[in-house]
Design a protein around this nucleic acid. Structure first.
Lengths: 340, 340
DNA sequence: GACGCCTACTGAACCGGATAAGCTGAGCCA
DNA sequence: TGGCTCAGCTTATCCGGTTCAGTAGGCGTC
């Protein structure tokens, strides 16, 4: 099937290629009557602009890149990314931008992908996930001058735009809630320690525990997987001074933790309270349903996409704080058992 | 930062643009010595080909499209798609193809996306998920002559290439396994009824139950979400002749079902056996861990991607059966309670 | 040594748009 | 009536590759 080009439209309309281009782009240079006629003909013969030709002459790819740097095993199970992608995608497709996705093995491979995308002019900008402490990707992107928005922060994002949620406030609220219920021994199963948001949460946790005089507060690190989350929980619950409440850095580990607790004969929330970060439908699937820190992840992604398109459009980079995750109490939290 | 073009490489090497193009593409037309010199210079000055220019003149986009037609809510929670994408992606990036992703609301929007991609020459081919009965996308793609591989089948894929797993055999094996344990009243919570693979599984379920003389076999339909899966389970377990085993069409519904059963005071697997389709890490998270029908989903995606690249490369379309899902018995299945 | 043939290249056209620069005729004014 | 402006177009060039039609030079051959 032959694809119509701008020349076909021009011939049908009896005008030049240039006139068609002006008409399609809403630029001055053609009368309103001619513009309408050209647009009608374009629609009629099913014309759409070749993204390649457009990219070549307009020096814009019409696409945004997203590189995900987590093993497939973890990517698959965490609802976070898919929710984020669907939000990003909704915003992009509304503005006729495409999303180019790549799964990479490590940060160096990710930087290599950015270099390639830049060299091939394949994308107009990129979204960065999983901000790390001293993230090598930041200077690399600054050097390439590839428009980018970091989903994460605040801080450590160099001159790039960024979008973050106030994880410190959310964690503080959670600890205060648990303390109000009567808990004094609260543990936290954290995600990968070199991620910036893990660090932020860890600092906030330490700060609020110090402020509230919780001396037994302990953080253990994990990798977001159910296996590791379960293992960490088993370790915590086997200790002499076992916690009466555990906060997990994602939903998958929280569910694994719930399962381990029940396996060990503890009732939730009677013996142990559980709070999950990222309130996905998974949290409502299990019994008891999990108290969770939720936020609108698709909206978060859409927001980031909007910000990136603004940077691509030449607006100054912005650093924006998004909605703070809010605590939804459900059946997995209650006062601690008496005498503990 | 200025990006080097093929002309820059040519100038440095003291040859023409054409010679550089031949050298880069491994085509005859330059001596081996010159080719090496050109490649060295290209690497040295950090040259990579503009995907736009390449797409324009070579009439190939260097990208493959994937449109996902499920609400964000369900997309996010099902590990299947992310696992599939990571497999597809691994295969594509090994061959320097990009993956263009789009989330759409319904099949008509999906067809519109294909038309747009085709018109814009944005992709060289597409992967089709969630094959339906009398799928309108098939004739639309045939008409566009856009290379495509359907992930699903067998049957109903028109002249397009396809890749499927033998769901009928897997379901039959599962029912036989449950019957061998002693179950006679087996129910199935199915996915969306207009999906082709749901139909295939439903037919296979009816056939094996007839063959084994299970008169109480019942199938109820759901939408893959935890809410609906839980609701369906509650209905099933409240009936007078309640089943002793339930097979779920995905892992999320199985977990919801497990939760509902426990809530209703039934023990799993003592009172009720549960089997999940798609063995994700989620199945091992819950207690008891779920007996599940598993397969290597990233490999499935990689396989489909390879098939699509072959079609794009001009090879004849192929219809291939992939690995059959295999049953992994875990703690959620056991003989039925006595007297039932 | 004239001829053909092959290798290794060059030059130019082309892909399909965007856009700067040039052209034309209508309208207005002095 | 001549000159000016300006809307509304056309023409030509460019983006950065690929590819086809040459062509120069070396080599073998009768």
């Amino acid at each position: 099937m032959k694809r119509p080009t701008i020349a076909d439209v021009a011939r049908h309309a009896g005008v030049s290629k240039g006139a068609v281009s002006y008409a399609l782009n809403g630029q001055p240079g053609v009368s309103e009557a001619t513009r309408q006629r050209i647009l009608a003909i374009a629609t009629e013969i099913g014309f759409s602009r070749s993204s390649a030709a457009r990219a070549l002459s307009a020096a814009t790819a019409g696409a945004v890149g997203l590189a995900l740097c987590r093993p497939a095993r973890i990517l698959g199970i965490e609802p976070f990314f898919m929710a984020l992608i669907s939000g990003v995608e909704a915003e992009l497709s509304a503005r006729s931008y495409a999303l180019t996705l790549q799964v990479v093995a490590d940060p160096d491979a990710e930087i290599a992908v950015y270099r390639r995308w830049w060299g091939e002019r394949r994308v107009d900008g990129v979204l960065i996930c999983d901000l790390r402490t001293d993230d090598r990707r930041i200077p690399a992107l600054e050097q390439l001058q590839l428009p980018a928005v970091v989903i994460g922060g605040p801080g450590g994002t160099g001159a790039l735009g960024s979008l973050w949620s106030d994880d410190a406030a959310a964690l503080t609220e959670t600890v205060e809630y648990l303390v109000a219920l009567g808990h004094r021994r609260i543990a936290r199963v954290a995600g990968l320690p070199d991620l910036r948001h893990t660090e932020i949460r860890t600092d906030a946790f330490a700060a609020v525990c110090r402020r509230l005089g919780l001396v037994d507060a302990v953080t253990v690190w994990s990798d977001y997987s159910g296996e590791e989350g379960g293992r960490a929980t088993r370790r915590l619950l086997s200790s002499a001074q076992r916690p009466t409440a555990v906060i997990y850095d994602n939903d998958v580990m929280a569910i694994a933790g719930l399962s381990v607790a029940q396996e060990m004969g503890l009732t939730v929330p009677g013996d142990l309270s559980i709070v999950a970060w990222d309130d996905s439908p998974l949290c409502r699937l299990v019994h008891p349903p999990l108290t969770a820190l939720g936020r609108d992840i698709p909206a978060y992604g859409a927001h980031a996409a909007r910000q990136l398109l603004a940077v691509i459009g030449g607006e100054p980079v912005s650093r924006v704080q998004d909605e703070t995750p809010h605590l939804t109490p459900r059946g997995s939290t209650a006062p601690p058992p008496r005498g503990r």
